[in-house]
Simulated assay, not measured.
Amino acid sequence: MSKSKNQYLLFYKPYGVLCQFTNPGIEAQRPTLKDYINIPDVYSVGRLDLDSEGLLLLTNNGAVKHRLGHRQFAHQRSYWVQVEGIPTAAALQQLTQGVLINRELTRPALVKLLTTAPPLPPRYPPIRDRRNIPTSWLELILTEGRNRQVRRMTAAVGYPTLRLVRFSINIGAMQLTLTGLDPGQWRYLTPQEQQAILQL
């Protein structure tokens, strides 16, 4: 157990888990963060959609939550994105320069077409396999987090997202990653990682 008054956790959110601790209404049968994390009064910094996976930072420090969650501070988040088809150079360039979402251009992004699939565990359920349509993986680094932004960006250039995994979050000069975590696992930040957050 962390001895600090403020708590900082990293969690590998699995596919199909709501990014909240309660599940009222029509989502009542969905698993939530509460099914994995038994730490009171911590909340996620930013969100991942139900159908997205990967790294979540959780804390009870409201100032840190605001500093890392607000788009004005532009901290980097990195994603592995499996898309339908093989994007052209023109499509990659468009993603890099920005695409229109709700009549507003997304910020410039870093985009790379990966030559091999990233080292990820299988997803359950697996993505739908369409025999005649190839898939490919992108590495996409953003400095903002609009609603379903990655999916909307790839769809806008003609390559729908099939699987989306956030694999790292930058905290100043330090990068927090999924390394050492399996889906559904969490850990406390190390003293060095906490210090990087407090220096922001």
Results as ranks from 00 to 15, higher is better:
residue 92 L to K: 09
residue 92 L to W: 06
residue 94 Q to T: 13
residue 94 Q to W: 10
residue 96 T to G: 09
residue 96 T to L: 06
residue 98 G to A: 03
residue 99 V to A: 01
residue 100 L to M: 11
residue 102 N to P: 02
residue 102 N to R: 12
residue 104 E to R: 15
residue 104 E to C: 13
residue 104 E to G: 05
residue 106 T to R: 07
residue 106 T to L: 03
residue 106 T to Y: 08
residue 109 A to K: 06
residue 109 A to M: 07
residue 109 A to C: 09
residue 110 L to V: 15
residue 110 L to R: 15
residue 111 V to A: 00
residue 115 T to R: 13
residue 115 T to S: 15
residue 118 P to S: 10
residue 118 P to H: 06
residue 118 P to R: 04
residue 121 P to L: 14
residue 121 P to C: 13
residue 121 P to D: 13
residue 121 P to G: 12
residue 124 Y to C: 11
residue 125 P to I: 09
residue 126 P to T: 11
residue 126 P to G: 03
residue 126 P to S: 07
residue 128 R to Q: 15
residue 128 R to F: 13
residue 128 R to T: 15
residue 132 N to D: 09
residue 135 T to Y: 02
residue 135 T to H: 08
residue 136 S to Y: 01
residue 136 S to D: 03
residue 137 W to I: 05
residue 139 E to S: 10
residue 140 L to Y: 04
residue 142 L to Y: 05
residue 145 G to T: 07
residue 148 R to D: 03
residue 149 Q to H: 02
residue 151 R to K: 13
residue 152 R to F: 04
residue 153 M to Y: 00
residue 153 M to P: 03
residue 154 T to P: 00
residue 155 A to P: 01
residue 156 A to I: 03
residue 156 A to L: 05
residue 157 V to K: 00
residue 157 V to H: 00
residue 157 V to L: 00
residue 158 G to I: 05
residue 158 G to A: 08
